[in-house]
Design a binder for these strands. Structure first.
Length: 553
RNA sequence: GGGCAAUUAGCUCAGUUGGAUAGAGCGUUGGCCUCCGGAGCCAAAGGCCACAAGUUCGAAUCUUGUAUUGCCCGCCA
């Protein structure tokens, strides 16, 4: 059993014997300072009012009952400290069993029950298929994909989705851009209209059409040509996006077409439903949604006086569709410049009969692309920007993903290409991977010497009794808590910080404690098993980030 | 003008239901290769958690105000 689980269970028993309910704000956590033991709990302060006694007195009586019930001497000490904290220290034997727990669970170690099978959808990237993915999309892709992995690990039933904006004006502009480029290739002296996409990739697409259809193009009508251009451009760009994401180890279960919503009449249906409920109304020739009643600054237009639908209208229909598919929680990952869009979307969700909390929006801040400290200018309009595939090709998928996940989503990220290639602590992906490779190297060497830890009796683990051993074990025991916390707070970056801690502990352990040359045979094998458990946790953590754990570097 | 977010060591950043003496990396300074991978380790210095009030046993964390910075504010997508 894990330490926190054990402690909580023991406390619940003691409290119920005292006739007190478990206080909601009770916290059990490893204290900042090791001298306060392995775990600290504030339960005496939390329940002192209900018992009508001083926190320290409550703590003392809880302590007594805990020790009474501890027949197997799992606790090596329980202390009352400060204002009434209960600090417990576990026996070495308890910690040594963690090796077995990790090795038995193997790739499932870290799994927890937080989600209880709740259905969650994570929708991310969803870039318009009008051009290749750039580095900003890459961050959203890394965050979304990693979040899905974490939520799965935390016991949620997760589905990932990409929403394809294939119905709006952007597609017309894309078609027009390609069409114009094609005209130019055919020798016509036309200018590219102002709002068109100017990237060179559009010229490539036009050239493909030229190669495919040849002289047949000259006999086609303008409508036919535009349609061919639009179709070809969208299909090819979407294929490119799918390929980029695959290379980036990002997976979407569902690719959902906006056009399919519109064609099925679901957008119109949603609008009439809102109108029927009295939430939408006509004004100045347009149809408005009364988002103000849900706290938005102002009401929003659903259908323009021109008759065109706004994006907001199809977004509402889209989210309605999501909930009708049975998701308990919907997570949307957006660029932070869309933060003003959150209140109206939350309003829409409530109008659909759900709670505002049934939609979580993660805002991903902009990425500053740098090279050796100097900013690289990015602009889709001029067509000069760094694509995700360029960045991956230069620094590698592992470094890119780790870098994207190295900050809270909602804070700006400086992505320095030179730094991402560097092999130093500035670039922790190598630090963490190196820790794993070191263990693998030891294992290989051990195998040469005929040491096979997997066959060793668990009793040998009693040799793991130094402070360094216990520190290591305690840290491994925190992995499931880290997963749970990352899932609960949708804080994807927490995994990377934890892994840096584990790697740091491993490097220290490795430097200060001889493993293969420890002398005593059972000590050698028990240390090998400890390191095997460390490697397992590193692998599991890196897997959550979508980063590889190489055996050799 | 209104709204959202941010402000923590020289730099880049962690710190989430309020907990004990505020942490990490980089950089700086000084050490560690007879030794399983030095892409490593150890140690030191470095802080008024932007500022000011408030809430309470206790505040980097919650409330209010101020300052600075970024972003958003269309019948755009």
């Amino acid at each position: 059993m894990r330490a926190r689980t054990h402690f909580q269970k023991a406390l619940v028993e003691v409290l119920s014997s005292m006739g007190v309910d478990w206080p909601e704000k009770t916290v059990i956590e490893p204290p900042k300072d090791k001298k306060f033991g392995d775990l600290a709990c504030n339960i005496a302060m939390m329940s002192s009012k209900a018992l009508g006694k001083k926190p320290r007195d409550v703590a003392e009586s809880i302590r007594g009952k805990l020790l009474e019930g501890d027949a197997d001497k799992i606790f090596s000490s329980i202390e009352v400290a400060g204002p009434g904290f209960l600090n417990v220290t576990y026996s070495p034997a308890f910690w040594q069993r963690q090796v077995q727990i990790v090795l038995d669970a193997a790739e499932d170690f870290g799994q927890c029950e937080l989600g209880k099978g709740r259905k969650v959808q994570v929708e991310f990237v969803s870039a318009n298929p009008t051009g290749p993915l750039h580095i900003g999309h890459g961050r959203g892709a890394a965050v979304g994909d990693s979040l899905a992995r974490i939520l799965r690990k935390a016991g949620f039933d997760v589905e990932t989705e990409y929403y394809i904006n294939d119905a709006g004006r952007q597609m017309l502009i894309l078609g027009m851009s390609t069409y114009t480029r094609l005209q130019q290739l055919l020798g016509s002296d036309v200018e590219l209209p102002e709002d068109c996409y100017k990237g060179d990739y559009i010229i490539d697409l036009a050239r493909e059409i030229q190669d495919e259809h040849g002289d047949a193009l000259r006999s086609m009508s303008e409508e036919e040509l535009e349609s061919i251009c639009r179709q070809h451009a969208m299909t090819r760009i979407l294929d490119g996006i799918k390929l980029d994401l695959k290379t980036f180890r990002v997976h979407h279960d569902i690719w959902f077409s906006e056009k399919s919503l519109v064609d099925a009449g679901k957008v119109e249906k949603t609008l009439s439903d809102l109108t029927a409920k009295g939430l939408a109304f006509e004004k100045d020739g347009a149809l408005w949604f009364d988002t103000e009643r849900y706290g938005d600054d102002k009401n929003r237009v659903l259908r323009k006086s021109s008759g065109d639908l706004t994006y907001f209208a199809s977004d509402i229909a889209y989210h309605d569709d999501k909930y009708k598919r049975g998701f308990d929680l919907v997570v949307d990952i957006w660029g932070a410049d869309h933060h003003g869009y959150v209140p109206r979307m939350k309003a829409a969700v409530q109008a659909l009969g759900k709670n505002a909390d049934d939609l979580e929006v993660i805002l991903v801040q902009l990425v500053n692309l740098l090279r050796a400290g100097k900013q690289i200018a990015m602009s889709t309009r001029s067509g000069e920007f760094d694509t995700l595939s360029d960045v991956c090709a230069e620094v590698g998928v592992d470094a890119a993903r780790f870098m994207f996940l190295s900050r809270k989503s909602d804070s700006h990220l400086d992505f320095d290409l030179e730094l991402a290639k560097e092999r130093s602590m500035d670039n922790p992906v190598y630090y963490v991977q190196y820790a794993h490779a070191r263990i693998c190297s030891l294992k290989a060497k051990a195998a040469e010497q005929g040491i096979k830890p997997s066959q060793v009796d668990m009793a040998a683990l009693t040799g793991l009794d130094t402070e360094a051993d216990i520190d290591m074990l305690r840290l491994l025991d925190q992995f499931p808590d880290t997963v749970e916390s990352a899932a609960k707070n949708l804080g994807v970056h927490q995994i990377g910080y934890y892994l840096r801690d584990v790697a740091s502990s491993l490097h220290r352990y490795y430097t200060l404690n001889p493993v293969l040359t420890a002398g005593d045979a059972s000590l050698v094998t028990s240390r090998m098993m400890l390191l095997e458990a460390v490697a397992q946790v590193l692998r599991n953590g890196l897997e959550l980030m979508g980063v590889s754990a190489p055996d050799r570097m």
